[in-house]
Design a protein around this nucleic acid. Structure first.
Lengths: 119, 119
DNA sequence: TTAATATATGAACATATATTCAAATGTGAG
DNA sequence: CTCACATTTGAATATATGTTCATATATTAA
């Protein structure tokens, strides 16, 4: 189909134009909202939530997390990579172990607030 | 100690047992954390975040949202279904239109807080 | 050095997800 | 009634995602 911007339907003049225009003006830039979705995405997995929740109590090495969550160290490591990418965790090497901890308290607060909301 | 429940590695006695035990005691139940992940999952998509953000300013019908986000009404409707399932939006019928609004202010607050954090 | 442990990584697989398209339902106007 | 519009829904498709498995890297001990 050769129409560019507007997809498929809603081509009629009838949309509540003023309302839409007003809301559009108030809305935050789409790219910012995409970043926000990415932030939530990092928190949208059971394993990652459990990791962050656990780290809100103490720093733990990969194997500790694996034991705690009863998962393979490999699976935990893959999820830790995502959390590192989201800047939600830091790590520290100590011999053969690598200890992870939360990057800032804001993440802990989000998880904590979420738990209160759910529970 | 060979444990059937424990996967793959981490079979050595050396895990920081006391720390793990202590954290395990403090941790919220896994099922609760799964619910939390589900909550975040509903917020983890660009389209859904934009919908909720838009609805934080005014109630809008499906076609308004489609025009605003420059998406097909069908795509918007599919995402609205997920948001309804997550109890994040309500709706009201008015003639041929169905107007959506946020279900509670808590959702708006989460999005707003998130935007501030990202921005 | 070799061996053992801790962690990371890449490929493969299965599952989940978002959008499109076509079709169905619902609603009001003429 | 018929018609047009608003919305929903299901199937199909493409893409994303999480775990497993095998392997690679790193560190320490013997």
């Amino acid at each position: 189909m050769e129409n560019e911007a507007m997809p498929k339907t809603c081509l009629r003049t009838f949309v509540h134009e003023e309302t839409v225009a007003r809301v559009r003006q108030k809305m935050t830039e789409s790219g910012r909202l995409l970043e926000l979705a990415e932030l939530f995405k990092a928190l949208s997995d059971h394993t990652r939530v459990r990791i962050l929740h656990a780290l809100s109590f103490d720093e733990l090495c990969v194997c500790d997390l694996a034991a705690l969550l009863e998962m393979s160290p490999s699976a935990v490591s893959h999820q830790l990579r995502i959390l590192r990418g989201a800047k939600m965790v830091r790590y520290r090497k100590a011999g053969k172990n690598i200890f992870y901890r939360l990057d800032d308290t804001h993440v802990a607060n989000m998880v904590k607030a979420g738990i209160e909301h759910v529970g």
